[in-house]
């Protein structure tokens, strides 16, 4: 389904509901996995994904035809993830390392986690990164987005993103090799 078709339905008040249904179908899986990789826990990812689409629904009337649906939805999802993790830190007055440790424990607990040893190690290594670097790594490595697209979503220059990504790759490789 082309984004342009979905946008044309969304921008017409008479077909907005239909357009939103198409949008949910087209994006729910991608957004869920994007969120899940950031918050690790399925229930949290489930709740946040629904919240993202509620916000998308509420924002449809202000959506501009010249915007990219793809980057707009990802930006909302990304902000929701970062807000969620920040709230977690504020609520328990814990430093980021402790939030990462909590998320790492969820991986160990194994609820909704499969995969082999290397897959688990990779996730634990990713959790050692700062949140925004984690976000960049996930979008580039797993979602195979272009740096231009990540730049539109995060508002960071492509140069900074490339540096951040390559630094993240090195840190993760070192962690997995030396652990």
């Amino acid at each position: 389904m082309e984004d342009s078709f979905i946008i044309s339905k969304i921008l017409n008040e008479d077909t907005r509901d239909y357009g939103f249904n198409l949008l949910v179908k087209a994006y729910q899986e991608r957004i869920y996995w994007h969120v899940r990789k950031m918050v690790i826990d399925h229930d949290d990812a489930d709740d946040l994904t629904q919240t993202v689409f509620i916000k998308v629904w509420k924002g449809l009337t202000n959506f501009r035809a010249d915007s990219k649906l793809y980057t707009w939805i990802y930006r909302i999802a990304t902000n929701e993830c970062l807000n969620f993790l920040n709230k977690k830190k504020r609520r328990f007055f814990v430093p980021i390392n402790d939030v990462a440790a909590e998320l790492s424990e969820k991986i160990d607990a194994g609820d909704g986690i499969g995969g082999d040893e290397i897959q688990i190690k990779l996730q634990k290594a990713i959790l050692k990164l700062p949140e925004k670097q984690r976000l960049v790594f996930n979008m580039k490595y797993f979602d195979e987005m272009k740096f231009d697209e990540i730049s539109e979503i995060t508002g960071t220059s492509t140069g900074a993103l490339k540096a951040s990504y390559h630094h993240a790759v090195k840190k993760i490789e070192d962690f997995i090799t030396n652990d």
């Binding site: 869920y32 996995w33 899940r36 990789k37 690790i40 399925h42 991986i107 909704g112 986690i113 499969g114 995969g115 082999d116 290397i118 897959q119 688990i120 990779l122 996730q123 797993f142």
Partner: peptide, 8 residues
Amino acid sequence: KIAAPFQV
């Protein structure tokens, strides 16, 4: 390429 281990 290493996949993410998450499942639903």
